[in-house]
Nucleic acid binder design. Structure first.
Lengths: 115, 115
DNA sequence: ACTACCTTGACACATCCGTGGTAAGGTTTG
DNA sequence: CAAACCTTACCACGGATGTGTCAAGGTAGT
C-alpha cells in the first residue's frame, strides 16, 4: 500500500511536519517506520490526522482531551473511577434526553458539577 | 443541611481555600452561596472534592481531563465525533487509490489506537 | 466594636503545551 | 556525488494551568 513521508503527509492533512512528529510523541498518531527509520503514513493515518484537525477546529477540543479519552479506553479501572465520580455528582446518565439536561441546568445551583 | 465555608471545606478535603475558588472558576465544583455571597459547601460537595483529589493522586488525572469528560456528557454530537475518531471509523481520503481502499477494508476491524 | 472570618482582584511563578526554528548527521534518488 | 529529503536533539517563546500570597473591603459572632 502507498505510504507518505512526513512532508507528504503534512501537505495532505494541513499539519506541519513538526506537528506530525509532536503528535507521534504524544502517542495520538503513530506511523510505521521504514527500515531506515523514516516515518511512513498510510491513508488511515492521514484520515486520523484530518479527523484530529477537524475535532480541534469544530469543537475546540485540545490534544490533551483526545489523549485522555484514549487513555480511558486503555485503563478500564480509571474509566470506572471517573464514571463513579461523575455519577456521584448526580449528572444525568449516559443517554439522558435533552430535557434531562435542561432540567439539570435549571437546578444547577442545587447541583455540584458544572462545565 | 449542614454547610461549610471555604476554609472549613478546605480543612475537610485537603484542598487549599485558594484551590477551592479555582475549582469553582473552572466549573468543576461550584458551591451554593449565602445571602451575603459566602460559599457554602455541603457534604456532597465535600465528597466531590475528595473524589477529585483522589483521581489526581491515584491516576494523575488533570482537572482538564475531568472537565472534558463532563463536556462529553453534555455534548452528544462531540461525543459521537470523538468516538468515531477513536474507532477509526473514517474512510480513506479523497483521491485514494484502489489499493488504499483494499488495505482499509482489510484493517477496518482493527482498532488503530485503542484496545 | 473587635476579631476572624469571607469576598474579589491582582501579581507572581513554575511548569507544561503547542509550535517554530536550527543544527548535525543519515538516506534516497537522479 | 549532490540535492533534497529524512532523522533526533536541542533552544525559544507565547499562552494556559495550577498554586501561593497579598490588598482592600464586606460580614458574623462574641
Amino acid at each position: 500500500m502507498q505510504t507518505y513521508t512526513v512532508s507528504q503527509a503534512a501537505e495532505r492533512t494541513g499539519w506541519s511536519p513538526r506537528m506530525l512528529r509532536y503528535l507521534e510523541s504524544t502517542g495520538l498518531v503513530v506511523p510505521e517506520r521504514s527500515a531506515a527509520g523514516y516515518r511512513r503514513y498510510g491513508s488511515q493515518e492521514l484520515e486520523l490526522l484530518r479527523g484530529l484537525a477537524e475535532l480541534r477546529r469544530r469543537y475546540e477540543v485540545e490534544l490533551d482531551d483526545v489523549a485522555f479519552v484514549v487513555r480511558l479506553r486503555r485503563e478500564p479501572e480509571l474509566r470506572a473511577a471517573v464514571e463513579s465520580w461523575l455519577t456521584g455528582a448526580t449528572v444525568p446518565a449516559e443517554g439522558a434526553s435533552e430535557a434531562d439536561w435542561i432540567e439539570w441546568e435549571q437546578r444547577k445551583h442545587e447541583r455540584l458539577l458544572v462545565a
